[in-house]
Design a protein around this nucleic acid. Structure first.
Length: 199
DNA sequence: ATCAAGATTACCT
DNA sequence: GGTAATCTTGATA
C-alpha cells in the first residue's frame, strides 16, 4: 500500500529530499482518473549558496513560490516555450526546491500521450520520449502556471511513498543545462533507467 | 523603453 | 551540429 508523502518529508535539506524523491510516484488526478509516473531523475537547487537557483538573489514575482515552506509545487516558464516543475523543500524562505527532470509513466499513459503528441497510439520511440525531460513532463501532465504554488497535500497533485531505492542504484552527477554553479554535483538519477533524460 | 539571457525541445541540414 | 520558438526578469537609458 502506498501512502502520501507528508509535510515532514519535504521540510528537510534539499539534497536529501532530492535523493529520496527517486522512485517515488508523482500523481495527478484528472476527471477522477489517476495519472501517475515514477520519478527517475531530479536536480536540487538551493538559493542561499547556489547561483543557478532562481531564488539566488531574492524573492521575485516569478520565484516567490520557491520561498514557501516545503510541500508546494513551483512551476516556471522558460525559453518562451516550456514549463518546468519543481517540488519546494525546506523551511519558509529557504528558497530551495527539487526540479523533476524525468519520470517513467505508470498509469494514464493515454492522457500523457494525448497531451504530448495529440494521439494515443505511440511507437516505441515516442513512448520512450514521452516524459524524459523537464519540459516534456509538464506538457504530458498538462502542468502550467495554473498549477504554480499548489499544495502537494491537496487532492489534485501529490506524491506517493514507495519502497526506498537502494543506494547503489542512485547516480550523482553535475546538473544539466546551466552555466552558473555548474560544478555542484546536485543531479541524481536511477542507474540504468531508460527514461532518464541524459547519461 | 529597450534588451539580453535563461534549470528546453523539436526540427532542420 | 545548429537554431527557432517567443515569456519573464533584471540591467541599462
Amino acid at each position: 500500500m502506498q501512502n502520501r508523502l507528508g509535510k515532514k518529508f519535504y521540510i528537510r535539506e534539499v539534497t536529501t529530499v532530492a535523493k529520496e524523491l527517486l522512485g517515488k510516484t508523482f500523481v495527478k488526478i484528472v476527471d477522477g482518473e489517476t495519472v501517475s509516473a515514477k520519478i527517475v531523475e531530479v536536480e536540487a537547487y538551493y538559493g542561499a549558496i547556489d547561483e543557478a537557483a532562481h531564488s539566488f538573489g531574492g524573492k521575485t514575482k516569478r520565484n516567490k513560490v520557491m520561498f514557501n515552506e516545503g510541500g508546494s509545487l513551483y512551476v516556471y516558464f522558460i525559453y518562451g516555450t516550456h514549463y518546468c516543475c519543481n517540488v519546494v523543500t525546506g523551511l519558509q524562505n529557504d528558497g530551495s526546491a527539487v526540479l523533476i527532470r524525468a519520470v517513467e509513466p505508470l498509469t494514464g499513459i493515454d492522457y500523457l500521450a494525448e497531451n504530448r503528441y495529440g494521439k494515443t497510439k505511440l511507437t516505441e520511440k515516442e513512448l520512450m520520449g514521452l516524459t524524459n525531460g523537464p519540459g516534456k513532463i509538464c506538457k504530458a501532465f498538462n502542468i502550467t502556471k495554473k498549477e504554480n504554488g499548489i499544495d502537494l497535500s491537496g487532492e489534485e497533485v501529490f506524491l506517493l511513498d514507495a519502497k526506498k531505492v537502494d543506494k547503489s542504484k542512485i547516480v550523482q552527477t553535475v546538473r544539466v543545462g546551466i552555466k552558473k554553479s555548474a560544478e555542484l554535483p546536485w543531479r541524481f538519477y536511477l542507474k540504468d533507467n531508460p527514461f532518464v533524460s541524459r547519461i
